[in-house]
């Protein structure tokens, strides 16, 4: 591949990398597909749900005949078909405060494919404590947001969004929106692993598909943040 800063060395780095994709839905589907296609050698995918018909507009790793199957099972099949040289570990579990450490420790990056803030905050905290890059993404309608959280005194998800937005019983997502954000999450992971470019740290990218523009919000670390202020080196 002729991309500046990538080359054979970059490909080798991807080959020995281990990325966790937490949630294999609208964000996790495109993110894991591009990570698999790029040659990330080891993917761990975590999800506790089964495929539903209403998922199919955006969760592009799951197809009509997969309705009723475990998402991790359906996704593993497709990801290994995209790239048979990679290892995919499928974990059919809910992410909790009990298992989050064990699921994220020692990996090269964690991709946020969750649909709720309590679990995102668990992942954020575990990643900050275990010094693992966390690539946050979220979507609704035609709006998406993205931010990369790196350990070492950089702002975390709690610095940007201190309080969980109220839960909505139902919200709609145009499938292409998580397509955009999930691809960008994969790109951030690939950049971090290979050492290319500048990660989206200290800024949140907001995608507005309605007007078709991207904006950045500056995010600084809150010195009193209960999550990342304990990790300031």
């Amino acid at each position: 591949m002729i991309i500046s800063g990538f080359g054979e060395t970059g490909q080798r780095k991807l080959n020995v990398a281990h990325v966790v994709v937490a949630g294999i839905g609208g964000l996790g589907s495109p993110a894991s597909s591009y990570l698999a296609a790029a040659g990330v050698g080891h993917l761990t995918i975590i999800d506790s749900q089964r495929v539903e018909l209403s998922n199919l507009n955006r969760q592009v790793l799951h197809w009509g005949p997969d309705v009723g199957r475990l998402k991790v099972e359906s996704a593993t099949e497709k990801l290994t078909a995209i790239n048979s040289n990679i290892k995919v570990d499928a974990i059919f579990e809910q992410i909790t405060s009990e298992n989050v450490d064990q699921l994220t420790k020692g990996v090269d990056a964690v991709v946020d494919g969750m649909d709720n803030y309590p679990t995102r905050y668990l992942l954020n905290e575990a990643c900050v404590q275990n010094r693992v890059p966390f690539i946050h993404g979220a979507v609704e309608g035609l709006v998406g947001q993205l931010m990369t959280i790196l350990p070492g005194g950089r702002p975390c998800l709690k610095c940007a969004i201190p309080k969980e937005p109220p839960k909505k019983p139902l919200f709609s997502v145009l499938g292409a929106t998580p397509g955009v954000i999930g691809c960008l999450q994969a790109m951030e992971a690939i950049k971090l692993i290979t050492g290319m470019g500048k990660p989206l740290v200290g800024r949140m990218l907001i995608f507005n598909g309605m007007d078709m523009n991207f904006d950045e919000i500056e995010v600084n670390r809150d010195p009193s943040c209960q999550v990342c202020s304990r990790q300031n080196r």
Partner: peptide, 12 residues
């Protein structure tokens, strides 16, 4: 000062 006002989204 610069103030940003945004509604965080939650879905995945």
């Amino acid at each position: 000062d610069e103030v940003a006002i945004f509604p965080p989204v939650a879905g995945g």
